[in-house]
Nucleic acid binder design. Structure first.
Lengths: 243, 243
DNA sequence: AAAACAAACGTAATTATGACGTTTATAATT
DNA sequence: AATTATAAACGTCATAATTACGTTTGTTTT
């Protein structure tokens, strides 16, 4: 057996976007469309990803891919898993010849997910033909990208219970009910509003603003913000075996 | 800029071993020793890792590395991060020439950690000159492996609070105090024994055996075991925003 | 038999949780 | 101007979990 020294290195990005209005957690996917002279070969959706450039860090590569797709920078990003099994041959063109020997290029991809607000992304004139899909209503997905999305989602579900990453998916100013809706969307559960409300309001890092919703046709809700500073200070000593 | 199609792919394994007697969480490291004709070039410790073979999955590769190092299979394993920055040039021999062009091979490594008991590993006649080091007293570490160890440890700290992986580090039959010692070692905190004891005993997946310690010079402690079956059944509905 | 000591049990005050019922403030409607 | 509809917000009570301690018990060693 010999080590494999020739392979594709790419990053793939699972872009999670939350829409506060429709209360749905979405994934941003791009169209893959290939046809030969006689037939349509593939017509499905895939994640955005790209080869890692020479002299580029993995993180920078993911950041670049997100920027090209959405125009956004400085979004929450997490490298959550590498996928690189030998059967992961993605593209017929991933064959190269060196010194008269043919190599199947293994495609190893470092998978990231991003958390952002759908409203921050303008998909008009998007060159990738990108579209949001609710996490629970994904279209036909190409390559092994469905697996990657599912694993990203699993990671997100676990992580949002122990870290305040949920607020990356919400506007800076939010209502208690918006936070609840988001938890419900992600976890697929029902939460008692009165208990949830009490719990959240009692957190010192959830700060009531001198502001209420405007333009709603019911009693406008109190707006809150999340303070990362206070959060960080609190959790220097946190010990909780919830196991 | 061009995509990088030629690189080293390896796995690196952070092997955590817990020693119930000395109550210390250790990392298994191997000696790296290189000298030229005139001087010692490096004399430090590194993680075990190796190139991923052609036609081998990443997981299999890590499993193989652990087996070669310790003889063990079927240990708890987690892929926790990929490291692959372009400055990660590990070895002078990582230079190759293709068609008269010189390539610096970027070394991308998929990092895993393992959880096991030091007592399960026999280091006599170990061909790698492997040694256990307490996580808080690491020697000089080569390459960027200290960073990898630190990140593995961080992941372990977080994960052991929400998942019962702690039991992978303990013998099948353990005492309550051994579990407490382990938590204290990993987290670097003091826990009140009386409260910890009550909390653990009340978990339905912690099962008291009809057995006590033998050969101890004080009151022998009750032995317990962990039931993964019961644990799994309980956590179908678990929802806990501890945030 | 006594001493030493870790193991194991106990208690009371406080805080968090789960499961509900009730009131309030606003915009829209009459 | 009063009424209605409705989401927002508050309240209560029983139970469970946590914190911070004190006390007893069962072995082995002296």
């Amino acid at each position: 057996m010999k080590p494999e020294k020739i392979l594709n290195l790419s990053v793939d990005c699972v872009v999670f976007g939350y829409d506060t209005n429709t209360k749905s957690l979405n994934v941003l996917l791009i169209k893959r469309f290939l046809e030969s002279e006689t037939e349509v070969l593939v017509d499905d959706y895939v994640l955005t990803g790209y080869h890692v450039y020479k002299d580029e860090t993995l993180d920078d590569s993911a950041t670049r891919v997100l920027k090209e797709l959405t125009g956004l920078t400085n979004q929450y990003k997490k490298q959550f898993k590498a996928f690189g099994n030998p059967d992961r041959l993605m593209n017929p063109k991933d064959l190269i010849w060196i010194e008269n020997e043919e190599f199947n290029l293994r495609t190893i991809t470092i998978a990231y997910y991003f958390l952002l607000k759908t409203e921050d992304v303008d998909l008009k004139d998007n060159k990738f033909d990108a579209k949001w899909f609710p996490i629970n209503a994904l279209p036909e997905i190409g390559f092994d990208h469905e697996k990657i999305i599912v694993e990203a989602y699993e990671d997100l579900k676990v992580k949002c219970l122990s870290e305040p990453i949920i607020f990356k998916l919400l506007p800076d100013k939010f209502t208690i009910n918006e936070v609840q809706d988001l938890y419900q969307s992600i976890l697929g559960i029902e939460i008692d509003n009165r208990n949830f409300r009490r719990k959240l309001i009692n957190k010192k890092y959830i700060i009531a603003l001198d502001e209420k919703q405007v333009g709603v046709s019911k009693k406008p809700a109190q707006l809150y913000m999340f303070s990362m500073d206070i959060y960080k200070k609190m959790f220097s000593k946190n010990y909780l075996i919830s196991m």
